[in-house]
Amino acid sequence: MMGEFDAIRPYDDAEVPAVLARLLSDPAFLDILTRFRFPRMANGFGWLLKPLIARRLRKEFAGVKCVATLQDKVEFYVDHTIERATDGVTYTGVEQFKSGTAYLFLANHRDIVMDPAFVNYAVYHAGLPTPRIAIGDNLLQKPFVSDMMRLNKSFIVHRSISGRREKLAAYQLLSAYINHSIRNDGASIWIAQAEGRAKDGNDRTDSAILKMFHMSRKDEPFGGVIQSLNLSPVSISYEYDPCDQAKARELYIRATTGTYTKAPGEDDLSIGLGITGYKGRVHINFNAPVTALFEDTKQLAAHIDRQILGGYRLFPVHYLAYAQWADADPQLQVPKANEVFGAEELAKAQAEWQRRLEACPEEHRPYLVLQYAMPVRNQYRVKAGLPL
């Protein structure tokens, strides 16, 4: 049975040693690691550091024969990276999940690598099996990235296919794999609520993704299929987005020229900045799995949106941005930042927000404000029971 998923599935335990050996002799992979560990010395002494790093990693990962052991080892590095780049990670709602049950975690999407990493972090530290992660093939340009991600329970979503029939077949396979993973393998899945990051801060569920879950079980009613997948909406909130300036620039270019073309290597830069850049505090909220019966994707998308936007954690910076947003809704009862937060917390946020505004070219600023203000509008619309 598993043969049909070979093109997209994560590596299994038997494949781990060979893939690890391949990774640890890949010059491009060792180059990235060297830059990450020794940013100041990588250029001048990279030739010297690379073989040392390779030797150390071969020694450290010598006994690794399965994915679970690998994740235990990698978790140390993930925790270290998180500690360096955040002011702490909190999570809520994870206690409602049972370890013998598989879930479909559907999350808002702000950062390419860190969104699933933070969900993994919360699930791992709660003592539950980590989910398999959906990742677009547009991010797997280099063979080592593909190897690295598939070792860490990632499966591939083929996005760069252009033909309509090929696209349909790819979605069909993806649908079958997700259903098989949850119902047959008992393995949870993480997938973003829409293709591509919500660069304007407006988190919305794409109905096409919900339709895809049902595609491989077309003969069954939609609502029942969704119920069988334990779909749990997840809100990931970053106090600060390391890529906010780049997103503001892209939104400005789109608004003024009508299009935006990514420069070569732009995704790699976003990934690097997203991992190592300062994020302030991070909060992950897990909502209860959807149990109601939804007749169609539109109704279900609206329900998921309310859950994700309602569970989003607003930080002082969001209120500060909302207060200076030209499109703020005067009918919404949004309090001022100083009515919600203490003086010390607020002063720290004001200084950081000011720094970000000053670093942003003036014409891009409205798009920086938009990213932080939008979640406030969305959450207060949910609270007021207004349509989104």
Rank of each mutant, 00 (worst) to 15 (best):
R365E: 02
Q331F: 11
R356P: 02
K336P: 02
V334R: 03
F341R: 08
V340D: 04
P335E: 09
A343K: 14
Q354F: 02
A359T: 08
R365P: 02
R355Q: 10
P335V: 10
Q354S: 12
N338G: 04
L332K: 10
A349F: 01
A349D: 07
E363A: 15
E352I: 11
E363S: 12
P361F: 03
Q354D: 10
G342E: 14
R355G: 00
A343E: 14
R356M: 10
E362A: 14
P361R: 03
E362D: 14
Q354V: 00
E339H: 11
G342D: 14
K336W: 05
P330C: 12
E358A: 09
R365G: 03
H364Y: 14
A337D: 04
A347K: 13
A343C: 02
A359V: 06
E362R: 11
A349N: 01
V334Y: 04
Q331D: 15
V340I: 15
A337K: 05
E358M: 05
N338K: 15
R355W: 00
P361L: 03
F341V: 11
L357Q: 08
A347E: 13
L332Y: 07
C360R: 03
V340F: 04
A359N: 11
A347G: 10
E339S: 11
A351Y: 07
E358G: 06
P335H: 10
W353V: 00
V340W: 03
A359D: 11
K348E: 12
W353T: 02
N338D: 15
Q333P: 07
K336D: 13
E362I: 09
A349T: 00
V334S: 03
E352F: 09
Q331T: 15
E344K: 07
E363K: 12
K336A: 15
P361Q: 03
